[in-house]
Simulated assay, not measured.
Amino acid sequence: MIRYLLSLVFSFVFFSLLAQPNHTKSSLRQLQQQIEQLATAAQGTVGVAATLVETGESVSLHGDQPFPMQSVYKMPIGMATLHLVDQGKLSLEQKIRVSTADYISKRQHSPIREKYPNGTELSLAELLRYAVSESDGSASDVLMRVVGGPNVIMSYLKSLGIKDLIVLNTEREIGSDNAVQYKNWAKPAEAVALLRRLQEGRGLSKSSRAFLLRLMTETETGLHRLKGQLPVGTVVAHKTGTSWTIDGVTAATNDIGLVTLPNGQHIAIAVFVSDAKADTDTREAVIANISRAVWDYWAR
């Protein structure tokens, strides 16, 4: 009987090992080379970091180099806001006055400004939805004001062990001077580290985490970036960031997010395309193709 049970255990382990993806250092290097090749189309600098959250296996390209975030920084702003909700210092239901003085410039993206040209009053939950799902710069600036400014956000990130992701300026300030965006930067590897903490439930309550992930999944921007080449129906919780194109050069075309694999595991991925000369379709295709390459590697 004991011999029979041992035989069953051996068979289970043996066939389980056969079912595991055949990931080796050699195949990971091949993925790295594939990412490097795909990045050349951007005609700029591309930073990539991707990790299979459940195992820690990772790949990167310029992962420790700083890149301007643009609206990617609305994700950590949202996390810091929800942390204060968890502490009882804010409430998702509380109403916050948004005046015309809170609105960013006309050439910056702000659905709130367009819908309420004379100002309005919105719940904190609505402001978070505008900032994260619709990437509204006015909503983001109001949230930054409500939480107490960049220092509060950076203190929260520091408590999570995140130091190479800098939230320093408002959207209004970023929009007033092209150079300011470079002061609000992240290293791809650090952006992925923050995504891992979110997926692992660190830094937020269960309800706040679920709310933020829903907002990131429902985001209306960047549909041709991380999600662009993935199988239909793939769940992607992500946040984009985009700068203007000046003299043929685009400072930032970004997307970071959590991708759910068919087996229930998760890829945390950040792709930053900086100072690129390629057109919009090409830059977004670079992000989509890198995302697909990473998907193919860990989904097989």
Rank of each mutant, 00 (worst) to 15 (best):
A139V: 11
A49T: 07
E121F: 03
P68A: 14
S274N: 08
S16E: 00
Q265M: 11
T219C: 10
R107P: 03
E171F: 02
A293V: 10
L128Q: 10
G257M: 03
N22G: 02
R300K: 14
A101P: 08
T120E: 01
R209L: 00
A49R: 06
Y297V: 07
A278P: 13
H109Y: 13
H224S: 10
Q70W: 07
A299C: 04
V273A: 04
V13D: 00
P68L: 02
A191I: 10
E134G: 01
I269R: 01
W185L: 04
Q70T: 00
L90D: 09
E57N: 13
V48G: 01
N151I: 00
Y4D: 06
L128C: 05
V259H: 10
L261F: 12
T45L: 00
V294A: 02
E190F: 07
S159P: 02
A252S: 14
L31N: 13
D141I: 00
V146N: 07
S26V: 11
K158G: 11
Q87E: 15
R172C: 00
L52R: 02
F211M: 12
V46S: 06
W244I: 11
V147I: 07
L17G: 11
W185A: 06
S110Y: 11
A189L: 11
E126W: 07
V9H: 01
L61Y: 01
V180K: 02
G137K: 03
R107V: 10
G47F: 07
S159D: 13
F10Y: 14
K25V: 05
R29A: 15
F211C: 10
K206Y: 11
G203Q: 05
V132I: 14
K115Q: 15
L124C: 07
H266I: 14
I104G: 01
T250M: 07
A299Q: 07
G248D: 13
S105W: 14
S138T: 14
I96W: 06
V152E: 09
F15K: 10
L6P: 04
G233M: 01
L28E: 06
D64F: 11
I77G: 06
D102R: 08
A288S: 06
L90F: 13
V98Y: 04
A80H: 02
R3E: 10
N118R: 11
T170K: 01
Q32W: 11
A251D: 14
D136M: 08
I246K: 12
A268V: 12
L198N: 01
D64P: 04
I174C: 08
I77W: 13
K89G: 03
A237H: 00
T81W: 10
D102H: 07
Q65D: 14
Q32C: 06
Y73F: 14
I174F: 08
E126I: 00
N263G: 07
H23S: 13
E218S: 10
T260L: 12
S105T: 15
S99P: 05
